[in-house]
């Protein structure tokens, strides 16, 4: 059992997500940076889909009530055990009575705390992920609260020796300026050619409205091709007949501020979507902070699939190193 002394700013239970219910409007939720999340589970010997804690910006203070192995992966929110700094990306021994806390965030936005066995909360629609908007999943449907108690599960499938580390070249680092790759498409036909160019040629600043639901960016106005709005679409030129929104899709309500829809987003609506962030870079966006800047880079489907394979290969390498 893990006792929550202080929950941090937004600490939630997340796993690979609730896949297969998009049709009824249920977003997948799940870890925002799946690479770091998966690496954490591998480091503690868990199933790759075991639930972990996703910690945003400000870490919690937790007291462990049993001896176990943990790993902290992701952006850099430096962990401490009983006040002493301990490394990230490493299997760590923690004893009953030990307290885990965190320093201020240095880089990135989110870290994952993997615990051998995984966090045990009830599965809702095949997932333990928290979807706070509807109060589903996780611990009581929401972010952690003071005095919450977390049970440890039995998703551990192999032993990993404490001190085992992820090789340096497999540890991502995060800057304050980010390049995020997207595939242009969906309803991009609605944007003028000039606005499509501008979308890819300016730095977009991340606003404080940047969370698991979506990231809103400030930059400049984008313009839509003039047309008589089709029947059923609504009157604003950014409106279309309500349609499904892919995870990672970007829309520009009224042309004013682009919004990238993420794991807890609405699944559909009436705004033209213009591009989709590729799966490899959804991991990266999960580590982007408010006030940092993003440059969107256009890639084609083959480049998107190649980037996806690169992520898979890195995880395979981690797995191989750990089984040595």
């Amino acid at each position: 059992m893990i006792h929550v002394i202080n929950p941090g700013l937004e600490t939630t239970v997340q796993d690979t997500g609730r896949i297969g219910f998009y049709e009824v409007g249920m977003p997948p939720s799940g870890a925002m940076d799946k690479y770091s999340y998966t690496a954490g589970n591998l480091l503690v010997g868990n199933n790759e889909s075991a639930a972990s804690l996703e910690i945003t910006y400000l870490g919690p203070e937790l007291e462990f009530q049993e001896d176990t192995i943990i790993a902290v992966t992701g952006g850099e929110i430096p962990p401490k055990i009983n006040g002493e700094s301990v490394p990230m990306w490493e299997a760590l021994e923690i004893k009953a009575g030990d307290k885990l806390s965190f320093d201020f965030v240095k880089q990135g936005a989110r870290v994952y705390l993997a615990v051998a066995g995984g966090i045990d909360v009830p599965e809702i629609m095949n997932s333990r992920s928290t979807y706070t908007l509807c109060g589903i999943g996780g611990l009581n449907g929401g972010k952690l609260q003071v005095n919450d108690k977390l049970e440890v599960g039995n998703e551990k499938i192999r032993d990993v020796k404490p001190g085992t580390r992820i090789a340096d070249h497999l540890i991502p680092s995060f800057d304050k300026h980010h390049e995020i790759r997207v595939v242009l498409g969906l309803c991009s036909y609605r944007l003028t050619e000039e606005s499509k160019d501008r979308f890819f040629s300016i730095d977009w600043k991340v606003t404080p409205e940047a969370n698991r639901v979506g990231y809103r960016f400030k930059g400049e106005r984008l313009n839509f091709v003039e047309r008589e709005q089709p029947f059923g679409a609504g009157s604003n030129p950014s409106n279309v007949v309500d349609l499904g929104y892919p995870i990672g899709s970007i829309q520009v309500p009224d042309g004013v501020e682009p919004i990238a829809l993420l794991n807890d987003a609405v699944t559909g609506g009436g705004y033209a979507t213009i591009a989709t962030i590729i799966s490899a870079d959804l991991n990266k966006l999960g580590q982007v902070k408010t006030n940092e800047t993003v440059r969107f880079v256009s890639v084609d489907i083959d480049e998107a699939l190649a980037a996806r394979n690169e992520v898979k290969e890195k995880l395979a390498e981690i797995k191989q190193n750990l089984s040595k």
């Binding site: 700013l9 910006y57 400000l58 965030v105 404080p208 408010t290 006030n291 940092e292």
Partner: peptide, 8 residues
């Protein structure tokens, strides 16, 4: 006094 988080 330091800000532990980014924002406004």
């Amino acid at each position: 006094v330091l800000s532990p988080i980014p924002g406004v």
